[in-house]
Design a protein around this nucleic acid. Structure first.
Lengths: 236, 236
DNA sequence: TGTTGACACATGGTATACCAAATTATGAAA
DNA sequence: TTTCATAATTTGGTATACCATGTGTCAACA
């Protein structure tokens, strides 16, 4: 059938990587997440677990577990009749998730001020410096990955395991939206300035500034999200 | 489909439950959650999925899914070798989760000020009033359930689906700790005052007050948590 | 021609079987 | 008695089979 052919073609594009300790479910969740973020599995598409498992050469059991993982990250949801489909969040829904993310990161900035070790702050500052120096030569994707790394490092420096965990879930859910947002030309200069503000606040261990700088940074991303919807702009 | 003939409706009336939407996995997760919160399954206990499934009369498949659900709520952990066990969070870990909860609820209060309908605020105020009037006659558990209902209603009034979802997970994770905290005699009067502050702020739709009142309320619960650890006190 | 209802099939939920890894028990050697 | 290698057992991960229900198709009928 046509569906199977379409699915088969996309598995051959990537290479299957065997791994050591990770379970098939987790590997599969990673593969599917990538396929979703690249829109190889487009938003709203139904996922028949039997067929997709067959295409990936696994049984339904780990496929089902992978779908649960993605569901908990908000990348997959269920129809009233339990059929899985790729999440297709509206801009408003993405903005709501980002609003929560902004709050989580503000908390992370606050906690990091008192909890982070000097070496952690040094690492964060180094990531910031790296982005400043190489912003002209980095590709969108590399710039973005460093950006994400910067944020994740701050959350890790908060020393709050629950926060790290929940932040990771929101990050997974919002990865694509943030990437699109960061690709906007206007964004990069603003991003660098805001990162500098965050870094400075952390170095000063100024709780109020760090919290506010983190929140403002994500709020800007929310604005970008709406702007991206309202008008198409040029990308780099 | 909409039309049913007379015979069918007569036969079905009163006999047939419309549709059993709840899966065994979800029911099992609920049962296990209860067992964990009642410490019938004590913290740190290993959970051999085969045996426990047999005890509950189900197969391993839904049991495994139930364990994944509880894991995503933080009520179950995994050892490095993947064996499930009941989570046994330290007071510090619980405090960290509550710190995140405080932030989430502060956001909920903030959003509820601008998003909640008048009737939602009326409902919230009614819950508050109910606790004030009946605090003397309610059992610990009923008082606590109303308390939880009050909080959940505010989060729902925020209109932010992601926030509702994440809050529900933290609530599940912290249910027991919050219950123990709320059982402290000293807590009830403070709780009522703080609930009143929250209610007033919401009725005034005062964003800053609502946010602060929500945060303060949970911060008090964190303090209670540590006090409960440090010295045993009398309970009602 | 449009509606309806029965039947076939698609799909997710559950049970069971099997395997590999990890844990525990065993026993021989020091 | 202690230690360590190894066998026996337990346990979680995966595959497969079966079942219940939802969904679509098409023929019969008004």
């Amino acid at each position: 059938m046509a569906k199977e052919n379409a699915l088969t073609s996309l598995v051959n594009e990537g290479e299957i990587k065997p791994s050591q300790r990770r379970s098939l479910s987790e590997e599969t969740a990673d593969k599917l997440r990538e396929l979703i973020l690249l829109e190889k599995l487009p938003p709203g598409m139904h996922i028949p677990e039997r067929d997709l498992a067959e295409v990936l050469g696994i049984s339904r059991t780990p496929m089902r577990e992978a779908l649960r993982i993605l569901e908990s990250q908000g990348l997959v949801d269920h129809t009233p009749t339990r059929r899985s489909r790729v999440a297709n969040p509206s801009v408003d829904e993405l903005a709501q998730s980002m609003k929560v993310l902004a709050t989580l990161e503000a908390l992370a900035g606050e906690l990091a001020c008192t909890h982070a070790s000097d070496s952690q702050i040094t690492t964060i500052a180094a990531l910031n410096q790296c982005m400043v120096e190489k912003s002209e030569v980095m590709s969108s994707i590399d710039f973005f990955k460093t950006d994400m790394n910067f944020h994740t490092s701050i959350v890790a420096a908060s020393g709050n395991a629950a926060l790290v965990d929940t932040h990771a879930k929101y990050n997974a859910r919002l990865w694509r939206a943030r990437f699109l947002s960061s690709r906007r030309k206007l964004g990069r200069a603003t991003t660098l300035q805001q990162h500098q503000d965050i870094t400075t606040a952390l170095q000063d261990r100024n709780v109020a500034d760090a919290s506010r700088a983190m929140r403002d940074h994500i709020e800007t991303a929310i604005e970008n999200l709406f702007m991206t919807r309202d008008k198409q702009e040029s990308f780099e």
